[in-house]
Design a protein around this nucleic acid. Structure first.
Lengths: 227, 227
DNA sequence: TGTACATCAGTGAACGCGCGTTCACTGATGTAC
DNA sequence: TGTACATCAGTGAACGCGCGTTCACTGATGTAC
């Protein structure tokens, strides 16, 4: 028992070492350059040994993706928890945390929100962690609705969403609502802003990225009735 | 003269053939999979022969990027020209044309607006064509300002932009203006929406992508005062 | 506590693949007198 | 118009590289009696 436990512990440790090295390679060279052989080389083991821990390169990549979604999700959740009670404060804290994480981990951000990795199909495992950031935004909206700080502005845009989504998220379900669709727009626009800054599309246009981003997010929050 | 002209014509033609094949490979397999050898193979020539036309793979990639920027730029310009006279009509036509082009050319879109290609640094040549889509949006704003259909909403957000940008674009330059910054937000949000749809982030959330997108763009146009 | 067996981690060689780029070369096409 | 030379396109072999994955194998570690 304790012997088997020791073996399992060693195994878990080496698994973690492999993902750590892989994550560092991903962070410095990008997903396309991530190679099992290079990871094995750095750990001083034969490249074939890695296959005792991950059945293929894609599985290693999946682990990194899940970890990255969890990392940005946790960063955003923590920032939002620490923020003041105002809806706008909470939203700005969450949005800025997402941007900060992205700037600190550009290649991991690119892996999550940039071009799909060629030949890689994301398995089901990545869906739940991918939703964490969006969950934070929805939570703010839900709280605002609960105590009347925001009201459904109407407009029926939610009819364009998948049936049942608003109910699942705890948003108004009656026809004529638009909060769900507004949330999707705010959510995707957050990533549009981060992506433009990170991938260099706003070079020569935006000077003070911090101030610009905050002002932009404030405007987006206004779309949801945050004050 | 006519002999030299003939040689030049043949040369231009083969150059075009190479870029055409390369573009097709890019469109079907993505930028990472684009290989000089594969292009040469398809054209039935030695891989070394391609070097008579492009000094390196990166140069071929640059040509494809410039062409792609021009293609989406032209698509957006044409759609906007054909649209009705209303500012919102023109904006919606432009935004939908961008989305249509992106959906028809996902890998080329990813090359322009997705993760940067590892090891590739975009040269100056790509800057001007990259601005064409944004120019269309700015043109609509400018026209609205000229005849008073929209007015500067104030807010001083333009202070976050590079000095001289608003003047260069023909937007209000007095301190306290926010139209430039609003334009950047709308612009990046347009790409955020397209990217989310194209890269699968909105799977399971948005059902009717056409209707959702139009409604979202209408809301963004409202940020600039379009009606 | 000791022994026979099963499990597991790790090795090193190999397979088969494709890539970008260089280089010395052969012919064909164009140019200058 | 004809000839000597220069330019250019294209070839094919080679260099050097790295990759993911498989496979038969050696020892060490754990397990059951």
């Amino acid at each position: 028992m304790s012997a088997a436990g020791a073996r399992a512990r060693v195994r878990a440790e080496l698994t973690r070492e492999i993902t750590d090295v892989a994550r560092r390679h991903l962070a410095s060279d990008g997903a396309a350059a991530l190679s099992l052989r290079a990871v094995a080389r750095e750990l001083g083991m034969a490249s074939s040994a890695v296959y005792r821990y991950f059945p293929s390169r894609d599985d290693l990549l999946t682990t990194l993706i899940v970890d990255a979604y969890d990392a940005i999700g946790e960063a955003v959740e923590r920032a939002e928890e620490k923020a003041g009670p105002g809806l706008m404060d909470r939203w700005l804290a969450a949005a800025c945390a997402a941007r900060d994480w992205a700037r600190a981990h550009p290649h991991e951000y690119a892996l999550l929100y940039g071009s799909p990795v060629p030949g890689y199909a994301a398995p089901q495992t990545t869906i739940a962690p991918a939703a964490r950031v969006a969950e934070v935004l929805i939570g703010i909206v839900r709280d605002g609705l609960a105590d009347g700080r925001i009201t459904d502005p109407g407009g029926d845009d939610d009819a364009t969403l998948e049936p049942g989504v608003t109910e699942r998220l705890g948003l108004p379900t009656e026809p004529g609502s638009s909060l769900g669709a507004r949330g999707v727009l705010v959510w995707s626009s957050l990533y549009g802003s981060i992506t433009f800054e990170l991938f260099g599309q706003s070079v020569g246009v935006v000077a003070d990225h911090d101030a610009y981003f905050t002002a932009a997010m404030r405007r987006l929050g206004g779309e949801l009735g945050f004050t």
